[in-house]
């Protein structure tokens, strides 16, 4: 399991762990709890080129489908087939076995614009203070 403190986050609740120019991407623990029981994951195709904040994946829970956005621009170099077979992994291990895809960053400096855990938690508190949806 990855250390949530070592990850970067975007406001749409994806996290990324960047190492050697490759980012591992998943959704936060907060997101999986809010989405509730994940029943389906549609992953991007390996080889696809994405831009930062581009929708490239769909996670569906019992009663809603959510677009998932790449935190970084680059090429999808791997996907986690385990979450296709067992979507509940996203709920059980959001920072581990529930990762979604890996993106080879074409502009790794984009990560600097993402939030660290402290700022992400402040963002969550701000969302909560502003009401329901």
């Amino acid at each position: 399991m990855l250390d949530p403190k070592a990850l970067k986050y975007q406001t749409s609740h994806e996290w990324v762990s960047l190492s050697d120019g490759v980012g591992v991407v998943g959704i936060s623990d907060h997101a999986q709890k809010e989405i509730t029981d994940v029943v389906f994951v549609e992953l991007p195709k390996v080889g696809r080129t994405v831009k930062a904040a581009e929708a490239c994946c769909v996670v569906e829970s019992v009663k809603a489908a959510f677009d998932i956005y790449s935190p970084l621009s680059g090429e999808i170099v791997a996907v986690n087939e385990a979450v296709v077979k067992d979507p509940a992994l996203v709920n059980r291990e959001p920072f581990g076995g529930g990762w979604l895809f890996k993106v080879k960053a074409s502009a790794p400096n984009e990560a600097a614009a993402l939030m660290d855990l402290k700022h992400y938690e402040e963002h969550l508190a701000s969302e909560a203070a502003h009401g329901s949806h």
């Binding site: 809010e34 989405i35 949806h133």
Partner: peptide
Amino acid sequence: WDRTLAPDAV
């Protein structure tokens, strides 16, 4: 729908 994710709230 730019705040909480929770579908139940909607």
